[in-house]
Simulated assay, not measured.
Amino acid sequence: MDILLTKKDLATKWQVSEKAIDDYRNKGIITSVKGLPSVRFTSQHIAEIEGTKLERFSPIERKRLERENEELRIRLERAEVTIAKIQMLSTGHVYDLQKNIG
């Protein structure tokens, strides 16, 4: 879950005035969360700006997802080859049927 920071929280964190935070927003340097009645910033967004991008997954979870992704990629390639073979065979059978009928 991402933590939301107020303008004051961010100003304190960066040791600047709240006006400086407003200036950063107006210049598009930082983006506040849309749809909220007050100005809030996600800690993820702020961390990315600070150059300390937070990881969504632990190294173990990332490795598991990479392995799963590779396994699914291989299965997809095999399925595509099988589908191509089925299409070739069915086209051949349709051609043979048409030839025998006509």
Rank of each mutant, 00 (worst) to 15 (best):
Q87I: 04
W14K: 03
L5N: 03
S58P: 00
V39C: 02
T31P: 01
I3K: 09
E77W: 06
Q44N: 10
I29G: 05
V16F: 09
E61D: 12
Q98H: 13
H45P: 08
E77Q: 12
R64G: 10
H93V: 05
S90W: 09
K63A: 15
E50G: 06
I74M: 12
F41M: 02
R25H: 09
G92D: 00
I86N: 02
T52W: 10
E71S: 10
H45C: 11
R40Y: 01
V16Q: 08
E61Q: 06
D23H: 07
I60M: 14
E50Q: 06
A47E: 01
E50W: 03
Q98S: 12
S43A: 12
T12S: 15
S17Q: 15
I29T: 14
L89H: 09
I101A: 09
T82K: 11
K85R: 03
G92T: 02
T82V: 12
T31I: 03
N100A: 15
N26K: 15
L36Q: 02
E18V: 13
S58Y: 03
A47V: 01
L89S: 07
A11Q: 02
L5S: 01
A20T: 12
R73G: 08
A20R: 09
L36K: 02
T12V: 14
I74N: 10
A79C: 08
R56C: 08
V33D: 01
E55K: 04
A20H: 07
